[in-house]
Amino acid sequence: MSTTVTQDMSFLHLITSASLLVQLVMLILVMISFFSWWYIFRKLFVIRSEIKKTDDFEDIFWRGVDLNAFHQRITSSRYQSGCLERIFAAGFGEFTKHPSGSDLEAVMESTRRAMRATYQREMDYLESHLSFLATVGSVSPYIGLLGTVWGIMNSFRSLSSVTQATIAHVAPGIAEALIATAMGLFAAIPAVVAYNRYASSTDQLATRFESFMEELSNVLQRRAAE
């Protein structure tokens, strides 16, 4: 053991011996990475449950159900309801508020507006934090690169005081600097993948919501015309 000339290159030693800025960059990256992964999992659960709820809702709705009873059930259990249920509740609620003798065009217009407003809110909720993931995906490699460049600069600067420059003088500094890049990439890659996946899922959900809104307005118009 005493004869080992090689320096301690363990991960912890590399981090603790890094310069202050590199350590700061690493800390920032760890926090960014943690939050990005947190949001990745949160959005995963949210979008997955939302897709399931939408499937269930469409399944029940198109099976042919009494709309008034359905609406009452949804408003009573609104905390477990999905986005599409809330959109339906907003539209149907707005539709039923109008007296039966009023102008059909105006009623349909206000119903569509109500649904549109709820749809916007729900899409905002679904797409929340996706921009954070996009930012992490694009920025964290640069933050890691900054730490790496700084660490390599320092390690080369320390070479100037050495008469015989060997790779052993630079290697630890470069290794500890490259950890920053590794952390940046570790934060960025999942964030980019998750962002792309969640963006496409929310787009799919949005098209489903929009088509349902159109279909519901048709259903309501027919019902009002009867």
Binding site: W38, Y39, I40, F41, R42, L44, F45, V46, S49
Partner: peptide
């Protein structure tokens, strides 16, 4: 937010 804690 479903399972926010588990996500963390």
């Amino acid at each position: 937010e479903p399972k926010s804690l588990t996500a963390g």
